[in-house]
């Protein structure tokens, strides 16, 4: 049950935090595109900026990416400190 508390959608992660992707949902074309850019389960990413509206700025696999808020909702992550 403890794990449930720390898993959250990416859009609810604050700026300047490191997280690990747990799962990605959504339609096939989104998942395909996201996966090709490094968004896969177990990949870690760094949230550079999340100001509560608009896209998020994240850093993963050596590149900075702007990710739409709707897309961020589909990515469930876990804070790295709590990750196994």
């Amino acid at each position: 049950m403890k794990a449930l508390k720390v898993d959250r959608p990416l859009d609810r992660v604050k700026s300047d935090s490191k997280v690990v992707i747990q799962s990605i949902s959504g339609d096939k074309s989104f998942i395909r595109r996201a996966a090709g850019r490094g968004f896969t389960p177990a990949a870690s990413l760094y949230v550079i900026q999340n100001i509560g509206i608009g896209p998020l700025l994240v850093y993963l696999q050596d590149s900075m990416v702007a990710l739409g808020r709707g897309e961020a909702k589909k990515i469930i992550v876990r804070k790295e400190d709590n990750a196994p």
């Binding site: 590149s63 900075m64 739409g68």
Partner: peptide, 12 residues
Amino acid sequence: GAEAGLIMELPP
């Protein structure tokens, strides 16, 4: 149909 969704690289 499916919204393309924003995944845009911000290159250096």
